[in-house]
Structures are given as structure tokens and as C-alpha cells.
Design a protein around this nucleic acid. Structure first.
Lengths: 199, 199
DNA sequence: CATTTTAACTAATCAAATTAGTTTTTGCAA
DNA sequence: TTGCAAAAACTAATTTGATTAGTTAAAATG
């Protein structure tokens, strides 16, 4: 008789992560997960509240891991180079963990403390990177939102197979990031104008 | 006896649209929709294959409507102004039809002819707008992908309530668009450089 | 008016999550 | 070691939705 490995929350999360990264977040179900763990579906309830809690935990894991990737990439870099590096890390994370990333953007409860904290950490990291540009505090935050939009938008569309035309996707990405960086430089030397205008 | 309105596909789609825009795409179910239409759930199958087909139809309707919004906005405008206008139209559409927009990015079948065609129309529209910049064909396509990423990313994050900090979201949006536009101008005068580099 | 089609209905089935209640296993202290 | 409490598994049952089967009523058409 094979002594089955004792199942705990971390093992469940691990298997769930593999499942969503390989099959997609929507394929995650109590039944399939239980099957992979070689237990009966109800047994999972000894470890977690239910499917929603599981998704919430995956979301948190996803944000934290994304932050790790970006943090690694940012070490020892600054300015344009740092922006390119964290952007590359972002897309790399999404490509390696599409399900986890998806979970981190479609979670059951957005008021979750731990989730918000993890998200905040990413924002702070990017703010630090942008520090090099000496932007006004407020503009810097707008730029964080902008970069985040770019990264989330690009990776989401890539994941959904939304880039139809046969044209190098990595090139599209690097041009996008570089275009944004050029834009930051332009805005940087004209900050006041951009604080006023309204279009 | 109140003579009930005859139900056809367009009425079903209309009610489904209201439902997803008000309650969110995930709240769409055969049961709830049937209830709103004052018929029994199975009756809906006289009009459509099932929930998946319904979602697919919503996706197509969403993309077409988005295209209409953008088209309207682009009329009579060109260059930077046109980019701002279609961007504004995009965010306006998503705010007015969050459920429909969501459907248009999370559909059951991405190989659907009609869906692809509708999506292609949006791409063509943006390509036309970018025509004013006389970019190399290939660069232009990269830029379309870039703008689309920006618009999808920003609106998605806004919809998921992802912009935490208390800072004017509309301002963030206009700064993002303007930063991108500045970037295009910079890239424009340096196209060759951007065709070579690889980061 | 008869017939055909459309669109509704009830009843039944299937799938998945979840809950209730029980049993087995395991770790640890007497 | 034994013996028990807690942990973690199980079976059985319930609930919620989607879907299918088979039937009936209404409406349109010749």
C-alpha cells in the first residue's frame, strides 16, 4: 500500500497552481483538484472554505510572486533600464504562470487585507523605479497607473490570443515599453503643462 | 390576462445586455435571464444553443458596439486629436457597458468568424487613425497593439477597482494617453533605431 | 379552417459545489 | 505501549444550474 503523502494547504495550493497554469483558471474545480490530489472532493473542505477561498489564495500567491519577479529584475538597475527590466519580468511571469496571473486579476474579494497589501507592494516597487525621473509625486503615481495598465493590457491580450496578425509579439512589447519611456521623458520636461491640461 | 410580449433573440440579447452591464458578466445565468424574461429556463433553448452561445453573442455585440463608439469619435478628427478621441470613446464604452465589454474579452470561442471580423474592424480603424503619422507599416501595427494594450489595460483595471489610491482616474487616463502620444512622436523621428533595437 | 412552425411548458438528467454525519488515521501524552 | 484527541479522510445527501426529452399551446400561413 503506497503511503499517500499527507496533504496540507501548501500542497493543495501547489497542485491548484499547476492546474490553473496548465489548464486555465476556469478549469479549476473542487472535483478536478481532488482527483489530482487523489482524495474525494469533500475532503478538501477540511483544508479550506471552498472554491472561492481557494481562488482568493491563488490571487494572493499570484500577486506576491509577480512582485518577486519584478523585484529581482529591478535590483541593481535604474531609470529606463529598470523600467525595461521590470516590464520584462512582468511579461515573463504572466507567460510562466498564466493561471496564477489570471487569478490575481479575477478574485472573489477585493477587500481582502492580504491581497491589497500584496498589490500595494507592487505599486511601491514601481514608484521606487520611477523615482529616478524626479517626477512630481502626483505625476509619478499617474505614471505607475500607466505602466501597470500597459503591462496588464498587453499581457492579457497576449494570453487571450488577441494579437491576430503575424508580427513578432516581443517586438510589439519592447516598442510599447520604449514608446512609453520616450513619453515619460517628454512629459518629464514639460510636467507643468501636463498638470494643467485636461484631455 | 396580460398578453406577454413575444420573445425573440434580439429581446433576449437586450435583456442579457442589461443584466451583465448592471450585475456583471458572472451573474449571467439561464435561470436569472429566464426570470427577467418571465419564462421558464428551458424555454430559452428554443432561441439559443445555451449559455455559451449567449456569451459569444454578447461578445460580438460588445466588439461591434465598441467599434461604433470609436468610429463616431474618429469622424472628422486626425492625428493626436483622433487618438485622444478614440481613447475617450473606448473608456466611455467600457464605463457604460462594463458587462458587454467584459464579454468581449472573455468569450467561449475565439475562432468564431463573426467575432474575429468585428475585432479586425477595430484594428483597421486604429490603423487608419495612425496613418497620419506616416509610420512604417510594421511599426504602425506595433503601435496599434500598444494602444490597444493601454486601453484594455487601463479600463480593465478601473473596472476591477484596481486603482487604489485616491487620485483622479480621468487625469491618470489622459496623462497615459498623452504620454503614449509623446512617445509616438519620439519614435516617429527615430523609426530606424526602433526597428533595430531589441530591448 | 387545417396544417405547420414556433415557442412555451413540465419532468427528468447531469454536473459541481457544498453540507452533514461518520470513520479512519495519526501524533502524542499517560 | 496504549489510548485518546485532533486531523483528515470518507460516504451519502442536498442544492444549484445547465441542459435534454418529450409534450402542448399559440400563432402564422396556405
Amino acid at each position: 500500500m503506497t503511503r499517500r503523502m499527507k496533504i496540507d494547504l501548501s500542497i493543495i495550493l501547489q497542485k491548484a497552481t499547476e492546474l490553473v497554469d496548465e489548464q486555465g483558471l476556469d478549469q479549476l474545480s473542487i472535483g478536478i483538484l481532488a482527483e489530482k490530489l487523489e482524495i474525494r472532493p469533500p475532503s478538501l473542505y477540511n483544508h479550506l472554505e471552498g472554491l472561492n477561498e481557494l481562488k482568493q489564495m491563488l490571487a494572493i500567491k499570484g500577486v506576491k510572486k509577480l512582485n518577486e519577479y519584478m523585484l529581482q529584475a529591478a535590483v541593481g538597475r535604474s531609470g529606463d533600464e529598470a523600467i525595461r527590466a521590470i516590464s520584462q519580468a512582468y511579461i515573463q511571469f504572466v507567460r510562466e504562470h498564466p493561471g496564477l496571473y489570471d487569478a490575481s486579476t479575477r478574485f472573489p474579494d477585493s477587500n481582502d487585507q492580504e491581497l491589497q497589501q500584496a498589490q500595494e507592494a507592487v505599486v511601491q516597487l514601481v514608484l521606487q523605479v520611477l523615482d529616478a525621473y524626479n517626477l512630481q509625486e502626483e505625476i509619478a503615481i499617474h505614471m505607475v497607473r500607466g505602466l501597470r495598465s500597459i503591462l496588464h493590457g498587453f499581457t492579457s491580450i497576449e494570453q487571450m490570443g488577441g494579437f491576430g496578425m503575424p508580427l513578432d509579439i516581443n517586438k510589439s512589447f519592447s516598442i510599447l515599453i520604449n514608446t512609453f519611456i520616450e513619453g515619460i521623458h517628454a512629459v518629464m520636461i514639460n510636467e507643468d503643462k501636463y498638470m494643467q491640461r485636461n484631455d
